[in-house]
Design a protein around this nucleic acid. Structure first.
Lengths: 333, 333
DNA sequence: CCTTCGCGTCGAAGCGCTTCGATGACCTGC
DNA sequence: GCAGGTCATCGAAGCGCTTCGACGCGAAGG
């Protein structure tokens, strides 16, 4: 039971190999009758083009690389959601996805690119001074980044508009009449790493609070319950009249509610809480959290679309910021 | 700046193309001096073999498929950890990983296999009556399954020994002197899906409890705080002297502690809690949970090893059960 | 009626690599 | 001193596909 090749199909259909190829690729006109005959043979023999041969001859592997980070502080569920959406979208464009971890570093990217294993790259969680960025500029293959390096010039970057997300939270709380609010942020290491999104959220939050004339505070925070409890307590001790809390730390969101309960503050009666986190986390919490979602699915879909456009040789914007949306649930009033 | 081919290397080193190939593959003896000359040229020119050409000529793509599920009830962080360990291990064997989602179904597997895109497949979360299993038996490529279908004959399956995990929990609680214990399980849908692992845990738990002559109870449980709270309350109402709780539901583990707190039971003074969950979840909880870990990393590594062995034509065991380990933390005494 | 032009199809030349059989060069042992 | 055997290297034949130029044929145009 040898594997079926295009030559087998050609013989079965009584046409030339090239004709089969053209039927399958649609790159030249083929009469309806011939096309049908070929298609029938393809089905009858169960033909599947050999990926290697196709890649060799056409210089297109129909595979894109997805490079995921796996460092501390990354939210795994979101990453997974993102990956899923990338795979699903890529399949819609008839491409497959090669999964890579960031710890292979620039060399890993160079390897898959130089060996023509992939036609394009998708990098998640790009840092401000990312050592992979200079390499990407040299590569023959196009790439799309999730996140923004210091100089995005000549690159294609996608991200949630975190500054807007921060502002949106401040706006929401201000609109509800709160006068003293605070941001409970990501673990300190995230800020230090300079990934950018944490700072941008903070900046947007502060800007929004200022614009509304609110008293605003902000703290990084680790993810353990004890740390969250301590930070919330600190915030509350320093500002007894604090009545609005923005949480930009998915892992901590649930703990914040627990801590407030223990500290004798009711949510939302005493303190309104707004989270910047995926919807499922917000919904699972009790009370359900008013939240600005991180639309992992949208980001993935958009990133793949941009990459596919680049593969087609189309021009695409350097920067794509996804508009955040605030969903009001039970934790704010 | 054309891409460098093996012919360029051969010319640069003053040898035949085949000699370069043999140097790189090590499949024939090459003199030390020639080898060095070739290696120098490779480096000087920055040569990387073209993956498509290599795959075509050698019939080995050096890529394996990783098929991940994305259904309700799956724990995303564990999935991600698993994927990471698969990628890392595969790289050690000089292979890359093609990421697929289970929703492409049997057709998707058939596609990547028939097109020789991959040399082998790794399927996560196999169900008792998995529609993909009959296909796997027909494929030219070897595969390894995480989980067990009804008839594992002729396949290669890896999993945590969930029955042992359940028993281990019962043993631990019995050893601490508890007489009435209960298992708080996965969401009902997980049992209904017949994935097997939930039942096996339950069976192991019951068996262990019986052997020690304990009173034992068990309930499936959804993941929301409210549901967990309700289930814990029910358990406690029915058995006021319940003093040991096994939680086999990662998402609920944290909520269980919260519920017990609200219900006025101290952990571990009044109730000992043992979880079957990844270490990080157990450690993050407060108090830290005594737990049997789901060793996602081990499973991934082991699965890749088995697949690589099969690719080399070696015989491997049909069934590999990974021994669970119980880590004692603060939540049991 | 003959030229011209598309349209549909074919044949062949690669794409860059692996692998097989062949070829020398050199050594060994009788 | 020569048959036999190694060892290192080479050349060439594919692997299965895409793509380019060529070609035959019927329709349209002069």
């Amino acid at each position: 039971m040898r594997t079926v090749t295009i030559a087998d199909v050609a013989k079965h259909a009584g046409v030339a190999v090239s004709t089969v190829s053209y039927v399958l690729s649609g790159k030249r006109a083929i009469s309806a009758t011939t096309r049908q005959r070929v298609l029938d043979s393809v089905r009858a023999l169960g033909y599947h083009p050999n990926a290697g041969a196709r890649a060799l001859a056409s210089k297109r592997a129909k595979v894109i690389a997805l490079v995921l980070p796996l460092r501390a502080g990354m939210n795994l569920p979101v990453l997974m959601r993102f990956a899923t959406s990338v795979v699903t979208t890529a399949r819609q464009y008839d491409h497959d996805v090669l999964l890579m971890t960031a710890d292979e570093g620039p060399d890993g990217l160079h390897r898959v690119a130089a060996s023509a294993l992939v036609d394009g790259l998708l990098l998640m969680d790009v840092e401000i001074h990312d050592p992979r960025v200079p390499l990407l500029r040299k590569l023959a293959q196009p790439s799309v980044l999730i996140g923004f390096p210091a100089d995005p010039h000549g690159l294609t970057c996608v991200d949630l508009d975190f500054a807007r997300a921060g502002t949106l939270c401040a706006d929401h709380l201000a609109g509800l009449g709160h006068r003293e609010i605070a941001l409970l942020g990501a673990p300190r290491v995230v800020y230090e790493r300079g990934t950018g999104f944490a700072e941008r959220t903070l900046a947007g939050f502060v800007e929004g609070a200022l614009r509304h004339g609110l008293e605003a505070d902000a703290r990084p925070c680790e993810e353990s319950f004890d740390e969250v409890h301590a930070t919330v307590k600190l915030l509350l001790d320093e500002r007894p009249r604090l009545s609005g809390l923005v949480v930009h730390n998915e892992a901590a969101a649930g703990h914040v509610l627990g801590a407030l309960r223990i500290l004798g503050r009711r949510v939302p009666e005493d303190v309104s809480v707004v989270a910047i986190c995926p919807d499922d986390i917000a919904e699972r919490a009790s009370p359900a959290l008013t939240s600005v979602l991180i639309p992992a699915e949208d980001v993935g879909r958009q990133a793949v679309r941009l990459l596919m456009a680049k593969l087609e040789g189309q021009a695409v914007p350097e920067s794509t910021l996804l508009e955040p949306r605030l969903t009001i649930r039970e934790s704010s009033r």
